[in-house]
Amino acid sequence: MGEINVYGIYFPILLVQAVIAYVLFKLLTPATDRLIQKGWIALPSIFNLCFYLGLMLLVHWLFVWLWV
């Protein structure tokens, strides 16, 4: 997909997607923390990693779908 040019500075699309996914992750983490505290999630660190990667996949899919 390439890069995004912001005032002469080129940012890779993957970096922009990662930042957007991280912001979404931070906004949705309080909801998942409640599930972790209740014991519904056995391995919280692995769950958080998979949750972030899932958000990254969703953001990437939206970028590809909207760019075409």
Rank of each mutant, 00 (worst) to 15 (best):
M1K: 04
M1A: 11
G2Q: 07
G2E: 03
G2D: 05
E3I: 08
E3V: 09
I4T: 03
I4V: 14
I4R: 04
I4G: 03
N5V: 08
V6Q: 05
V6E: 00
Y7F: 15
I9G: 02
I9R: 15
Y10C: 10
Y10H: 11
F11V: 14
P12A: 02
P12W: 00
P12G: 01
L14F: 12
L14R: 15
V16I: 15
Q17P: 06
A18Q: 07
A18P: 06
V19R: 13
V19E: 10
I20G: 02
I20N: 02
A21P: 09
A21L: 02
V23D: 07
V23N: 12
V23T: 10
L24Q: 06
L24D: 07
L24P: 02
F25S: 07
K26C: 04
L27A: 11
L27G: 04
L28Q: 05
L28Y: 09
T29E: 14
T29M: 13
T29K: 15
P30Q: 06
P30I: 03
A31C: 07
T32R: 14
D33R: 14
D33S: 12
R34M: 12
R34E: 11
L35H: 09
L35S: 10
L35R: 12
L35C: 10
Q37C: 03
Q37H: 10
Q37A: 11
K38T: 08
K38P: 03
K38M: 08
G39N: 06
W40R: 08
I41N: 00
I41T: 00
A42K: 12
L43P: 00
L43N: 04
L43E: 05
S45H: 07
S45T: 09
I46S: 07
F47I: 02
F47V: 00
F47M: 01
F47G: 00
F47Q: 01
L49W: 06
L49P: 03
C50F: 12
C50G: 13
C50R: 13
C50L: 15
F51C: 01
F51Q: 04
Y52L: 15
L53S: 06
L53T: 05
L53Y: 11
G54S: 10
L55E: 02
L58F: 14
V59E: 06
L62G: 09
L62R: 14
F63T: 05
F63P: 01
V64Q: 11
V64A: 09
V64W: 07
V64P: 03
V64F: 12
W65I: 09
L66T: 12
L66I: 06
L66E: 01
V68W: 09
V68E: 04
V68F: 09
